[in-house]
Computed example of a mutant assay.
Amino acid sequence: MKKDLLMILFICMFLLGAYMAIAQASPWEGVKAPYEGQEQSIGSYANGCLSGGEALPLQGEGFQVIRPSRNRYYGHPDMIAYLTKLGAKTKAFGLDDLLIADIAMPRGGNFSSGHASHQTGLDADIWLSFAPETLTKTATENQTAVSLVDLKNYKLRRENWLKEHAILFQVAASEPEVARIFVHPVIKETLCGLSWEDRSWLQKVRPWWGHHYHMHVRLRCPEGSTSCVNQKAPPLGDGCGAELISWRPKPEDDKKTASVTKKKKAKIKPAQCTTVLTQ
C-alpha cells in the first residue's frame, strides 16, 4: 500500500513538472517557419519579433552553424547578409570557419529561458573558437565552448588567445551596420592593449559579463523597419579608459549594497507581433 502511494505521488509530481514546463514555454518556440510578410525587425532587441526572416545556410564560405536542432539560425535578411559577408572576409584573412550559434527563432520573439534579447533577428552569437574542417552532423550539435578568460582570476587565458581573435573582432566591428559587439571585459581590455592604426571600431566593442566564449553581434535597425527600436549609441571614444576599469572586480567591502527586490513589469510586445505569431 505504501509503495502504491509513493508511486502515485511520483506520477503526480512528474505530471505537475511537465505541466509547469509547458505552461512556462514561450509560444514563439513552437513556431517552425518564418512569417511570410514584409521583412521587418519589430520592437526592441529584448521585446520584439521578426517578420520576413531568413534562415542562415547551415554551412557557407567561412562559417558553419552549430546546434542547428535548436532552430535558432533565423535572422533579418540584413543579419544573414552580414554573417555571410563576415565569413567570406575572415576566410580571406586566413581564418578557419566561424561557428555561428544562436541568432533568433523563425519569427523572433522571447525564449522560455536563456536569452533576453535575440528577439528581432538582429543579434547573433559567434563562438570564439574555429572549425578547421567541415563538422559532422553530430559534431555540430556537440561542440565544446572554449573560454578565453580565467574567470576566477579575471585574466586572459593566454593559451586560448589567438592572433585570429584580434582579426575577427576588428573585421566584425568595422562593418557600418554593426551597433555593438558584447564581450567579456577582459577581452575588451586585451583588444585595447593591442596596437591599432585605426581604433574607431573599438567603440562598438562593449564589455558585458558572460561573453567569455562567444561574441554577441548586434546590428542597427534596418531601413524600412519603422517599428524597430535602436539602442542608444555607445559613449564616444574607444571605451578603453575609466569606463573599462570600472568593470574590474572590487574588494568585497565595496560590493556590499542593500538588497532590494524589484518587481519586474510584464513587457507588452508591439501589436504587429500578434499577427506575426498567429498567422
Rank of each mutant, 00 (worst) to 15 (best):
I8F: 09
L9R: 09
A21R: 13
A33C: 00
E36F: 00
I42R: 03
A46D: 14
A46K: 08
A55K: 09
P57K: 03
F63E: 08
P68Q: 04
P68C: 05
Y73C: 04
Y73E: 08
I80S: 03
I80Q: 00
A81S: 14
L83I: 13
L86H: 09
G94H: 07
L99V: 04
L99F: 01
L99E: 10
L99A: 06
I103D: 07
M105C: 05
G108I: 03
G109V: 07
F111L: 11
S112D: 12
G114P: 07
G114A: 09
H118W: 11
W127G: 08
L128N: 08
F130D: 07
K137T: 09
K137G: 00
D150V: 10
K163P: 08
Q170I: 07
V171F: 11
S174R: 12
P176K: 04
L194Q: 14
S195V: 15
D198N: 11
V205K: 02
W208D: 08
W209V: 06
H216P: 05
L219Y: 05
C221K: 10
E223G: 07
T226E: 15
A242K: 15
L244S: 00
L244K: 05
R248M: 08
P251L: 12
E252T: 12
D253K: 12
V260Y: 01
K267N: 02
K269H: 10
Q279P: 04
